Amino acid sequence: MKTLYKLLGLFLVLNLVACKQTAKEEVDTTTEVKTTEANYDIPDSWIQKRVDAANKRLNTTEAGKVLWSAMEAHGGLNKWYSNGYFSFHFNYAPVNVKGIRDSYQTIDTWSNKARHNSITDPTSSFGWDGEEAWVKPKDSTSFAYDTQFWALTPLYFSGQPFVLDGEGVNLELLPEQEFQGTMQKVIKATYDAGVGSAPDDYYILYVNAKTNLVDAFKYIVSYPEYFPNGGHAPEKITVTQGTTTVDGIVFATGFKTYWSTNDKDGLGEYITKIDVSDISFSPTVEENFFSKPEGAKVLNK
């Protein structure tokens, strides 16, 4: 009988130890999950300070007032920065089927970091971590385009007009004009020297005089890697194709891009169709989400 009691006691002790070990492992697992996510922890006071500064700066000029009214119509600069990480599927498809760029991307709108995953092969990715551009393709055919240039380019389509709120952006009010039967307030945005990777770029926004939404914009590409001796590509014009509202922000669901002309509406040859889908905001991403993954190649060094 004593032996039976001893065995029973030993069993209870071992069972208790096992339970404690299991509980410990469960705690450790929970802690591990928490450390694999990065929160969009931008203090409200920081966002409000940035928004107030933009409001004050923009509303000192007529061109700035037009841009500010467009930001308000699209949901507001405060909401743009408060919503979290911005994700969307951006399918850039030239009509001639050359240079298709189809990726799902996530942007840190606060610091302009970006990560793209190929739609055809999600294991292939590229991005910008704020200091370095990187790419990790499956093979040499994964990205048949300049991923360093493209890392933030889609943001300058889908992020209009919010992407023009910063320091170093110069605005000029141009005469109102009719575009596709609707009067437009027109502003031109240029950049100070040294701002961004292509400071000679410009954008000309057509802001609907009734809705204050961006109906279209003209732009040039002056990326130095493409034009090492200066200059730029011919001007293009991109026209919004439908809108949707996600977490209070109004986005285009697509664009059509044309060569720009001096004819009525300025629409020359139709050259690119862009579809924008799967738009969302998230408060978290994986830890080191925007950083260069193991095996990736750094591009800007």
Rank of each mutant, 00 (worst) to 15 (best):
D44A: 07
A23F: 05
K34W: 03
T30C: 04
Y40S: 04
C19K: 05
K49Q: 02
N39L: 13
I42V: 15
Y40C: 04
D44V: 03
F11L: 15
E26S: 06
D52V: 01
E32I: 03
G9Y: 13
N15K: 10
E32Q: 14
C19T: 04
L12I: 15
E26C: 04
T31W: 03
F11C: 10
V17E: 00
E25G: 05
L14H: 04
Q48T: 12
A38N: 08
C19M: 05
E37F: 14
D41S: 15
R50G: 01
T35C: 03
T29H: 06
K20P: 00
T36Y: 06
L14A: 15
K49L: 04
T22I: 01
A23N: 08
N15M: 13
V17I: 12
E32F: 01
K49I: 02
T36P: 02
K34T: 09
F11S: 13
V13S: 09
L10R: 11
C19G: 05
D28G: 00
Q21T: 14
N15T: 15
V13T: 15
N39V: 12
I47P: 02
N39A: 13
K24T: 08
T31V: 06
R50E: 02
T31E: 13
Q21C: 07
T30E: 14
T22F: 00
V51M: 00
N39T: 14
W46E: 14
S45P: 01
A38F: 01
Y40R: 09
I42A: 08
E32T: 10
I42S: 09
D41R: 12
E37V: 15
T30N: 08
L16R: 07
T31D: 10
F11R: 09
G9D: 11
V33W: 02
G9I: 11
V27F: 06
D28C: 05
T29L: 10
L12N: 09
T22N: 02
T35W: 02
I47W: 00
L14F: 08
E26P: 00
Y40P: 03
K24M: 07
L12D: 08
K24D: 08
V51D: 01
E37S: 14
D44Q: 10
T30D: 07
N39Q: 11
N15D: 03
L16A: 15
K20C: 03
S45F: 01
D28K: 09
S45C: 04
V33Y: 02
A38E: 06
L12K: 11
C19H: 02
G9F: 09
W46D: 12
G9L: 12
E37Y: 14
Q21W: 05
T29C: 05
V27S: 11
E37I: 15
T35G: 01
Q48D: 07
D44W: 02
V27N: 10
D52N: 03
V13A: 11
T29Y: 02
E26Q: 06
N39H: 13
E32P: 02
T29Q: 10
P43L: 10
S45M: 07
V17G: 03
E32R: 14
A38S: 12
T30A: 14
A18W: 08
D44F: 01
S45G: 04
A18V: 13
K49D: 00
N15E: 02
N15R: 09
D28Q: 12
A18M: 12
K34V: 10
N39R: 13
E25C: 07
T31A: 15
T31S: 11
T30G: 04
D52Y: 00
N15H: 06
D28H: 05
I42R: 10
V51G: 00
